[in-house]
Design a protein around this nucleic acid. Sequence first.
DNA 1: TTACTTTTTGTAATTTTTACAATAAGTATT
DNA 2: AATACTTATTGTAAAAATTACAAAAAGTAA
Lengths: 241, 241
Amino acid sequence: MAKTNKTLRRRNEYQIYDVPIDSFFELAFSIDCVVFGYGKKDLQVLLIQRGAEPYKGLWALPGDLVYPDEDLDTSAGRVLKALTSLPDLNFEQVHTFGAVDRHPLGRVVTVAYYAIVNMKGFNPKAAFWADKAKWHSVKNLPKLAFDHRDIIDYSYKKLKESTMTKPLWNGVIEEKFTLTQLQSFFETVLDKKFDKGNFRKKIDLFQYVKETEEFEKDVPYRPSRLFKFDKKLYQKNEESS
Amino acid sequence: MAKTNKTLRRRNEYQIYDVPIDSFFELAFSIDCVVFGYGKKDLQVLLIQRGAEPYKGLWALPGDLVYPDEDLDTSAGRVLKALTSLPDLNFEQVHTFGAVDRHPLGRVVTVAYYAIVNMKGFNPKAAFWADKAKWHSVKNLPKLAFDHRDIIDYSYKKLKESTMTKPLWNGVIEEKFTLTQLQSFFETVLDKKFDKGNFRKKIDLFQYVKETEEFEKDVPYRPSRLFKFDKKLYQKNEESS
DNA sequence: TTACTTTTTGTAATTTTTACAATAAGTATT
DNA sequence: AATACTTATTGTAAAAATTACAAAAAGTAA
């Protein structure tokens, strides 16, 4: 990014300052996505190995520059869709990272988003970035490019905070699920065991977890009743709060 | 912002796209500050009346473009200091607003911050923006420029969420305070009354609220013991969590 | 029929929250 | 000095929520 030494006296509503001409435009704007993978093991994070400098060879979060004609959230949705091929992913803005020196090649401010997906839904071979993308356990992350470690830490914290209050599991576990499956989701994300009975009492309070008349099949023990997410009821309760 | 029709084939780690040359730099980057004012009445918000188009005459949040050589948080700190003259204000990032059409003159992405101050510490006459800045009750906001109403709503929600878990009152109420004064802070911010006895029990759990050996003076009733914020203990507990 | 596994419901102890009352300690008034 | 008054401070009992643990139910497998 070229620098100029000419300065311009600028003024806004309440102060005057001197800055290099055009220097406000010497910056780029990106989004970075923390995609958490839910599966049988630890919670995972999807990382991409960088093929170019800076930080060549290190692992990094998938991200992209924001197009000039696209909303911030749209940009995150676009990258997530390209990565996961999942159309209706829920994602949420986490934080914006804007330290001057966070990118060695220039001023790049990045907005972090997170999402959580079921790893089973993935077919890495099908994606063009497959040979470069890999899941890593949140408990054992490699050395990361830029400030991406901070971004993950921040996102993981927010994910945990949201898990108790928002139905993040919707769209991640099966559409019709057993309470044991739901409990596993909570246990994996929060990295913590729950008592079976007490967990059910807590879920009872979530009115948007509705029982169905269906049951598990082909299990070598007593089949569990299946439950589902009541989207309408959830949205109604959200509005009134 | 001038547009060009030339396009450039860009490539990043995992996809290729065509964009107008330089168009990633056709954007500006700002911060906006939601300064909440604590006083005897409702919680207030500091707004500035716009003197120029767009939205001339409407009220807006104080904010500024981010300097190219300044961290995001530094930028917020600079604006807040210019506005409030308070050196060590606590402020927190809330959310980033990046809809394409949020600014009628071009693409401006803004990062929102909030802070809370004691209105008594203010001397509006002393500041150069005094004739344009005014406190407004959060319960009765005027018509606002841009998407600033959304920004305030978002910030107010976050302020409420943080009030129970963080000592936001530190630096806002007196350094040595009575528990009744602390309770008033909570009641004003959360817009909700608390039971005197029960509030004390809750505060008892906040180990960083430490009693002193001092008492109120010149009050026409039983003087209350004064308490203070134990910064060291708070920071120690923060680290271990 | 019995053993086994998991689901589902229940229960009693503990802790936390809530509503409300009693006491304490000062000032102001008679 | 005694009394009224105001707020601070402590206490207490009922209600609600959480926790640890157990029992019963409902299926499969031997």
